[in-house]
Design a protein around this nucleic acid. Structure first.
Lengths: 345, 345
DNA sequence: ACCCCCTTTGGGAGCGCTCCCAATACTCTG
DNA sequence: CAGAGTATTGGGAGCGCTCCCAAAGGGGGT
């Protein structure tokens, strides 16, 4: 019934498939790995044997013999609470998952918390336990990307770390998203458009500020540094920045906030100051998170195609692993954003 | 300098560590795996060699030789959008990650979308590519748990599928959470407390309804089936159910909604009907999601310790893998919920 | 001093697969 | 029809580790 040498409850091995198909182990391996150097008849015989036996290759053996793992790691710095918030984390994961769906690649999730875990991570990667790494929310001063580069470990990051990013990266068009948001406010007749920024060490936050400035200039409005309030991506930070703005420029009639969460903080302050939204002050956020949809009034926000970003990151990484021709420049993808207009503007 | 046989750029092997420490391969292995049958002197020699060489065991080789993988899979049914929403997904992942942090276990994330992927998953698991499986958001009629059981694959699920759950499971106390929520409403003087339920095929939704009923009875209020409106965990469903309730029982003065998202839908309908919250109608949700915090007025909600659930699931699974003594009953954990009172009640 | 037993150690035998070389079977030239 | 390729094929040699057996070393009892 079953193949000759069946260990109790054991899964069929390549050897058994080969025997069943009446071919050698090497040939069976070739068929399974889609090598073209196999005759049609042989291929069919092997495929039949695979189907009959329900053969599934043993990953560990493959990895050991082939010196690869067919797995990539998604590395998430856990302290980065912002990343874990909607919509980032799940959307990225879905995108990555989608890109990997018809691949043999497995997705390893690695949360990096404290320094100890960080060191362990370096070991993991050093030990070549994965074929490539997806890095999200990396800071400009994070040594990890360089380490990976030295190890020759393929790696893709989300969000360029600075203008001269050298690693393959996927980003949304922060500049254009911010520019469009501010342009929208101006088109609605707003004349004193303020902005609350994220931490400006984060390149994306800087780009959003750049976009704001560009739109203000394009609209022929007088640039005013006192309409710019830096914050830190938190709700409290957003509230604090809003208070500063109100104190400095009580006449402002619109605020472009670099994240929805900060916008929630700002809205709270505006409500306390009895400014109506959008009548007195128009508000636009960034991220199109669930917060935006449920805020009252519903928040106009800049949507980033996060799932698509995940998908592209994974694709880029697979390309990287497959090996780009030397000399190819580092691919970097910038995806368009979309302004979702709701009631706050 | 380095050990004798060093392949170009290769990682040190156990053999090399053993040589460096002046012991045999078997002994080195024992030290690395923490076997007690090694003399102190030898142990120290090996540990020194490991440190000097920066040795990290090769997972693939280990898996192949030891017939285990040191990896568990978190299986997420992707169609279950509800699960992907805040706060579930990221919180579960964090919890699982925390439990695994000082373990050698890796976390594999497996999104299961369509049927094709579902079959692939069965293969994965059949091929023993993981040591255990964490299943979230399983439906009562999902064949996967039984399949795993047959394969002898350790498995833990989140949320019992029915009263007679046989698999190890971790759940929050849905009954008690709902009961406390309704008790809270009653204690605030509400007398016509309605409820909007989730899909009642979901056991947790049923339990919340049971809790509602228990609290109503305990308060000595007349049970009234027309105060119960079934929905489906979606915002639209919540809105529809609210409309029904308002039509049937215009005099209601409180609603316990089995999820925050549905509560958002209900609130919308209440606003359109010019019912003030909480003056006219008090509202309590479930999940304590970001929606609850940002709703206006902020929504009172039942918080589930989701991260803790992830942690316990992982611990349970590790125990399962380590092997429970036969005869031990299936461990199942029920964690307490917490009522977070805000402005809506 | 001898024997027995327990502790510690070394290393062979795989685990299942890929890589690659040598062998075989065909096919095409001239 | 010989010679030279060219397309297929089989299977040895590992990949690095765990398991396990047999050997070696030590200690105590008699």
């Amino acid at each position: 019934m079953a193949a000759a040498r069946v260990r109790s409850g054991g899964r069929p091995t390549l050897e058994e498939v080969a025997a069943r198909a009446g071919v050698g182990r090497g040939t069976a391996s070739r068929v399974i790995n889609g090598s073209p150097r196999v005759s049609d008849a042989t291929r069919q015989a092997v495929e039949a044997a695979v189907a009959e036996l329900g053969y599934v290759p043993n990953r560990a053996a493959r990895a050991l013999a082939g010196n690869r793992t067919d797995a990539i790691a998604l590395v998430v710095p856990e302290p980065e609470t912002r990343f874990f918030a909607e919509p980032y984390f799940s959307a990225i994961v879905r995108g990555v998952g989608a890109a990997l769906a018809d691949t043999e690649m497995q997705l390893l999730l690695t949360l990096v918390g404290n320094d100890r875990e960080r060191r362990r991570l370096a070991q993991y990667l050093t030990a070549h336990r994965v074929d490539g790494v997806l890095l999200v929310a990396v800071h400009a001063d994070d040594p990890l990307p360089e380490l990976l580069e030295q190890l020759g470990m393929p790696c893709v990051i989300s969000g360029a770390r600075h203008a001269a990013e050298t690693l393959p990266s996927v980003d949304s068009d922060n500049f254009e998203g911010a520019r469009a948001a501010v342009e929208h406010l101006v088109s609605r007749g707003r004349r004193q458009v303020a902005t609350i920024t994220g931490r400006l060490e984060v390149y994306g936050a800087q780009r959003r500020l750049d976009g704001y400035r560009a739109a203000v200039a394009a609209a022929g409005l007088a640039p005013d540094e006192r309409l710019i309030a830096p914050a830190d991506f938190t709700e409290e930070g957003g509230a604090g920045a809003m208070r500063d703005l109100l104190a400095r420029r009580p006449g402002l009639d619109a605020v472009f906030v670099a994240s929805d969460v900060m916008a929630a903080g700002a809205r709270q302050v505006l409500r306390e100051a009895d400014r109506r939204i959008p009548e007195d002050v128009a508000l636009v956020g960034f991220d199109d998170s669930v917060v935006a949809r449920h805020m009252h009034p519903a928040l106009t926000s800049v949507r980033q195609p996060i799932e698509e970003m995940g998908r592209r990151m994974a694709q880029l990484l697979l390309d990287e692993i497959a090996g780009r021709a030397p000399g190819d420049e580092r691919p970097s993808v910038v995806l368009p954003t979309e302004l979702v207009v709701r009631d706050s503007s």
